[in-house]
Design a protein around this nucleic acid. Structure first.
Lengths: 162, 162
DNA sequence: TATTGTTATACTCTATAACTATA
DNA sequence: TATAGTTATAGAGTATAACAATA
């Protein structure tokens, strides 16, 4: 009986991500959100994107896929699109007040989710884990993975912690 | 300027899983597979499931979703379904020869993928990573995550390494 | 009635290709 | 022509609800 190889790391990663991702979906859905919408909102709040292509890249989807989500978000009143007067090809995407509100609600859910996730972990372990995951991603991208999203927990110095 | 929180671990996990998962999709697609098909095949090869509900649970999908995939796999000749004579409610799922062949092809791709993933990692780091990921998953499931899949690299003592 | 699985239907996310508008 | 974005269409994966078959 050879030493069991244990599950390959890709399988462990995929299963963990599925489990954790579903819990996150659930948390966001409770607040009327979804992962793509959350990714779009957080990107709009935490970095300046020059155009939708950049936004799509930051979220990790194609331009047409982004349009699809933006249409839904515009319909539900989370964002507005207007043309940039300096270059009318560019559609400037902006959060509405409702979009801001939803962002804060989702941020709260995301923070709670992350807190739950970190339970029992030391800060050092989280750092180690993040580092290992980054290296994993780098191994399949050739090293160019965009792992920023810096200070998202305080997008406005306020995340609604009542 | 407060110390940047870095990305929350859930975000790092999701992004890494997306990146790595897409690379894996790509690797499987090249061999005519997909992740659900691979999960089903590997489960059939590495554990004895009493019925389709168990198989669905092992793969992490609903029964109806499994049926959907099994239909496709039956159509493409990877599996057969026959009724268990002892309990005709149960549909016994079995790999055809073609199914075996595809399994081995996908296993090869999966092994190559995992090797690529592990590049630059020590065995200890992989163990650490797997452990941390398991704990992460446990934090959202209440502890009952099914992380087996033991010796999948040698389903028959042979994985086709030419 | 309970268990096993399938069918019908639909939703979300994603993508590619062709198109419009602007430069 | 090149760039920014949208529309049209489609496909994969998933799910729930209702159903059929068997026990």
């Amino acid at each position: 009986m050879q030493k069991p190889t244990a599950a390959p790391i890709g399988v462990v990663l995929a299963k963990t991500a599925k489990t954790v991702g579903r819990a996150f979906d659930q948390a966001l859905a409770t607040e009327g959100g979804s992962q793509p919408v959350w990714q779009i909102l957080i990107t709009l709040k935490t970095r300046r994107v020059a155009n939708q292509r950049e936004l799509a890249a930051a979220v990790g989807i194609q331009g047409a896929t982004l349009t699809h989500h933006l249409n839904a978000m515009e319909n539900t009143g989370l964002i507005t699109r207007r043309r940039d007067p300096d270059n009318r090809r560019i559609h400037v995407v902006e959060l509405t007040d409702e979009g801001e509100t939803v962002f804060h609600r989702l941020a709260k859910a995301a923070i709670a989710h992350d807190k739950r996730l970190r339970a029992g972990f030391s800060a050092e372990e989280i750092t180690t884990l993040a580092g290992l995951l980054s290296r994993l991603a780098a191994n399949v991208t050739g090293g160019g993975i965009d792992q920023e999203n810096s200070d998202w927990t305080h997008p406005n110095g306020d995340t609604g912690q009542d």
